[in-house]
């Protein structure tokens, strides 16, 4: 599903965010990405979603070598991913409903589908009562869940979540990862950046640790039997 081959990323200001990273994530995996602040986790995800381009190395997503991607193809590869951004990225002139619906409008969904699907997804993240609110009227955790709802709404084959529980209390965090786990069980690949060790410990998933731009630890992906136990 995702393959990094000796990928390096140097930002224009000279920061070496990733150094010679190689990694393979199979279809249907659930991977936690951990590491201290500034380690390069968000950079790793931004390379996958084509928001940044690597300085060297190859990235293959869904069998597609990203460096061969034309600019106008980028939106279409992004649509195959549900992305939860660390900085939420909600449109503040739109209501919660409209923000989530926007992702469906992009792919040309009908109004009927949208009216059915959006409330359902908002219900999954416990925001059914906030549909008419604007992002500015929401708490950080609520905004984050709107972002999650938007990432889930099109049923993507890959979910990339950059600290989706960063602003959420522990109980709700577990609920959310449970939700992601359920989605993963149905075959969706999930990459999730997190700082919460309790989450990582509780859900026995593959953990990739990035430190100072390199992968310093990578547990093997969990076996099918173990996954059924938790």
């Amino acid at each position: 599903m995702i393959e990094f081959q000796n990928v390096s990323k140097i930002y224009s200001n000279g920061t070496r965010a990733l150094k010679d990273v190689s990694l393979k994530v199979d279809k249907g995996e659930f991977v936690f990405i951990v590491g201290s602040s500034g380690a390069g986790k968000s950079t790793f995800l931004k390379l996958i979603m084509c928001e940044e381009r690597p300085n060297s190395g190859e990235i293959i997503v869904n069998g597609r070598e990203l460096s061969t991607l034309k600019k106008r193809e980028v939106p279409f590869i992004r649509r195959t991913m549900g992305i939860v951004f660390q900085d939420f990225r909600l449109i503040d002139t739109m209501t919660v409903f409209e923000n989530v619906a926007f992702a469906m409008h992009i792919v040309g969904a009908s109004n009927k589908e949208i009216r059915k699907r959006v409330p359902y997804i908002l219900g999954l993240v416990n925001l059914q009562n906030k549909a008419k609110c604007h992002p500015a009227e929401l708490s950080g955790g609520e905004q984050q869940r709107v972002g999650l709802a938007r990432a889930l709404v099109n049923n993507p084959k890959l979910i990339i979540a950059d600290e989706p529980t960063g602003n959420i209390d522990p109980a709700l965090s577990f609920e959310i990862v449970d939700l992601l786990n359920e989605i993963n069980r149905r075959g969706t690949t999930i990459l999730m950046v997190t700082h919460e060790h309790t989450l990582v410990k509780h859900f026995h998933k593959r953990v990739v640790e990035i430190h100072d731009g390199t992968i310093v630890a990578d547990t093997a992906s969990q076996k099918e039997e173990e996954r059924h136990e938790d």
Binding site: R79, I83, R89, A103, I106
Partner: peptide, 15 residues
């Protein structure tokens, strides 16, 4: 900000 968000969730320039 709006434009960049739209792009980051997969909207084409035409859209």
């Amino acid at each position: 900000v709006e434009i960049s968000i739209m792009k980051s969730v997969g909207a084409t320039n035409g859209f």
